[in-house]
């Protein structure tokens, strides 16, 4: 029953009730990322102002992990600073790529710590990272 623990209540909650879903105006950059192995995709927009993330809006399709990860990202990033958010993205990436061997830093990750169990399933890591990588890409583009 390892996977049951991967589907944390918080993940299922975000999957069933996604926060901030839907593409919104205005935005500085829009990106489209695809996970070719499973067909999950996300279109994501960011609106930044003066080092702050004003909005992360997204739309896409995919499994519960990929969709919940986008929802959690929206909650964490919106209203926070770009710098803080990018450090959360880095910590989240480190956790996901840690094959379940890494202790998650809950202070940095907040709700995203619920995805810790996903790291034990290499096939699902990309699902969790999809929208987070898209966000990083969108921030870079909007600052270019």
């Amino acid at each position: 029953m390892i996977a049951e623990s991967m589907y944390q209540e918080l993940i299922l909650e975000h999957y069933k009730h996604p926060q901030g879903r839907g593409l919104r105006e205005p935005y500085d950059a829009e990106v489209h990322h695809v996970n070719p192995t499973c067909g999950d995709e996300v279109t994501l927009r960011v609106k930044l102002d003066d080092g702050k993330v004003l909005d992360v809006s997204y739309d896409g399709q995919g499994c519960s992990i990929s969709q919940a990860a986008a929802s959690v990202l929206h909650e964490l990033a919106t209203g926070s600073t770009v710098e803080e958010t990018l450090s959360v993205v880095d910590e989240f990436t480190r956790l996901m790529q840690g094959r379940g061997q890494i202790e998650a830093d809950e202070d940095v990750l907040g709700d995203a710590v619920a995805f810790a169990g996903v790291a034990k399933f290499p096939a699902r890591v990309k699902c969790a990272l999809l929208s987070w990588m898209a966000f990083k890409d969108a921030v870079l583009r909007s600052q270019a």
Partner: peptide
């Protein structure tokens, strides 16, 4: 429900191996 979620639960809880994806 996305097939990846279906496959994960089938395998992990019931030992049922199916294929999911395209």
């Amino acid at each position: 429900i996305h097939p990846h979620d279906v496959g994960q639960i089938l395998d992990d809880v019931f030992g049922v191996a199916v294929r999911v994806g395209h």
